Computed example of a mutant assay.
Amino acid sequence: MAEPAPRSSVQFGGTTVTYLPDGVVRANPLAAFPGTTHTDWDSYSDLLDNDEWLVVSVGSFLIRNDAGVTLIDLGLGEVHFEVPAAATYDGGQLLTNLSAEHLYPADVDFVLFTHLHRDHVGWVSDGAGGLTFPKARHIVNQEEWNHWWSFGDPTGPDPETVLAPLTPAIEFFGTQPPVSGISALPTPGHTPGHTSFLITDPATDDNVLILGDAIHTRAQLENLDWTFRSDYDSRLALKRRTDLLYRHGESEPLIANGHFSGSVFGHSCVHR
Rank of each mutant, 00 (worst) to 15 (best):
T217H: 06
R229C: 03
T242C: 07
K239G: 04
D233R: 07
L209I: 01
H216D: 02
I215F: 13
R235Q: 09
G212S: 08
A237I: 02
D233A: 01
K239D: 12
H216Q: 03
A237C: 09
N207F: 13
W226V: 09
L211C: 11
L209T: 00
T217P: 12
R235T: 06
W226E: 03
I215Q: 04
R241A: 06
T242A: 12
S234V: 09
R240C: 07
P202H: 10
T242S: 02
A214G: 11
R218Q: 02
L211K: 01
G212K: 08
D206Y: 09
R241F: 11
K239Y: 05
W226K: 01
D206P: 09
N223I: 07
D243C: 06
T227E: 06
R229Y: 10
R240D: 11
T227P: 06
E222C: 15
N207Y: 11
S230D: 14
K239W: 10
G212T: 00
T227D: 09
N223W: 03
D233C: 11
T204F: 00
D225H: 08
N223S: 06
V208M: 12
R229M: 04
D206G: 13
P202D: 13
R235I: 01
D206Q: 14
S234L: 02
D213N: 00
H216Y: 15
R241W: 08
D243F: 00
D243E: 10
L209P: 11
L221M: 06
A203V: 00
D225I: 14
F228Y: 15
R235C: 00
N207C: 14
N207D: 15
T204I: 00
D205G: 06
D205L: 03
D231W: 11
D213H: 13
Y232T: 00
L209N: 06
N223C: 13
P202K: 01
E222Y: 01
I210K: 06
A214W: 08
S234D: 12
N207I: 00
E222G: 13
A203N: 15
T242Q: 04
V208T: 02
D231H: 14
R241N: 05
F228H: 14
A237H: 15
G212C: 08
N207W: 04
A219M: 14
S234W: 12
T204Y: 00
R241H: 03
T204N: 14
R241E: 03
A237M: 12
D231Q: 15
F228Q: 02
R229L: 12
D231V: 08
L221G: 02
Q220M: 12
R240A: 14
T204C: 11
I215D: 01
T227W: 03
L236H: 04
T242Y: 01
H216R: 05
L224D: 02
